Simulated assay, not measured.
Amino acid sequence: MTQMTQASVPGAAATAENPDLDRAIEKNRRKEKGLRARDLSLAVLTPVILLLLWEVAARTGLIDARLFTPPSQIAAQGWKMTVSGELWKHIAATGTRLLIGFSCGAAAGILVGLLMGVSRPLRAALGPTFTALYALPKIAILPLLLLIFGLTETPKILSVAISVFFVIQINTLAGIVQIDDRILEAARAYKATGTKLFRHVLLPGAMPSVMTGLRVAAGMSVIVVTAVEFVASNDGLGYLIWNSWQLFQPSKMYVGLIVVSVLGAIVTGLIIVLERALIPWKYSNKRTKKASK
């Protein structure tokens, strides 16, 4: 009976026969847990220490407190603006432009990238043009958009959408082109054509590149929307930063800068969560590799 139980659970038998393996696995688990705790501590402590050094330097006169407002005063200013609703107004304006522009640009970029990936004539026709347009600074397109659409929300949203479109289109196309020909041959041998080939081979194969494009585009979209709000808006975080500089209100300017950086981190974090949901095999492969070491 004992033999049958051990045979039915080979891992348990192997563990019972190899106590050294048990100890090695447990040691490796504790080491990995310790490394994660250390990484988290460093991630939290580094900005805290930098802020403390900034505070001390500003209070003791090592740096000009009029230009480098102490973090305590920045926090007080941020709380004041939050309570009054001023900060929420700017966050809402920037967030709306970012959400609409990023969504439209990402959808168009993925669609065009996939079409160019499966169609060689389309790739030949549009490839050089898109390469030239990608090199053009996206903020340079803003005056043209303002001429066409006027001082409305459309130019601001389109500026974000255009910048996101090219990044994701390039990454999506690269993901399709880099799929191994042997995989495509095997898929066709199993009668995977048309929508089946697209759904089960092309899209999963390109998805890691698509997610990389989304992560890059997330940071770029925050930069572009902030720059656009510098010159063509009466609200938003970019306007808050620029207007505070013009009125020499550095505490408000720093509040805007901090909120923009936090917004960028949140957008990137959401993309990472989406990536884990859409391509879980990528992270499961990483865990398997770590476990095998």
Rank of each mutant, 00 (worst) to 15 (best):
D64C: 05
A58E: 00
Q3C: 04
L111H: 05
V56T: 14
I179F: 02
L203P: 11
S8H: 09
A75R: 09
S72F: 13
L202I: 15
K31H: 05
S8Y: 11
T154A: 11
K80I: 05
P47W: 10
T212P: 02
L42G: 08
A12N: 14
V273I: 12
V225A: 01
W88Q: 13
A265H: 05
A93I: 11
G194H: 15
L52S: 15
E185R: 15
V231A: 10
S284K: 12
L203M: 12
T82R: 09
T195I: 15
G85C: 10
A106F: 03
L142I: 10
T129K: 05
M207Q: 03
V160S: 01
V160Y: 00
R29P: 00
R182W: 10
V160T: 06
R287F: 02
D20G: 10
L263I: 06
V259P: 00
R199M: 08
V112N: 05
P143I: 11
G256C: 10
V9H: 12
K196C: 15
Q6L: 14
A24K: 13
I279K: 07
A227V: 06
E185V: 14
E275H: 09
P280M: 08
G213R: 03
P143C: 12
I91D: 01
T5F: 08
S41N: 06
G95K: 10
S244C: 14
L144D: 01
E32F: 06
S159G: 08
K282S: 08
A12E: 14
L278A: 13
A75I: 15
P155V: 07
K196Y: 11
G256Y: 01
S209T: 03
I272E: 13
P10L: 11
F165R: 01
A189P: 12
N234V: 09
T193L: 13
N285M: 09
D235L: 11
E32V: 06
A227K: 02
L67I: 13
G194N: 15
R123I: 02
V201G: 11
D181A: 15
A174K: 09
D180K: 11
A76Q: 12
I258F: 12
W88T: 14
M253I: 07
Y190Q: 15
S221M: 03
Q6M: 14
P70N: 07
D64I: 03
I162E: 00
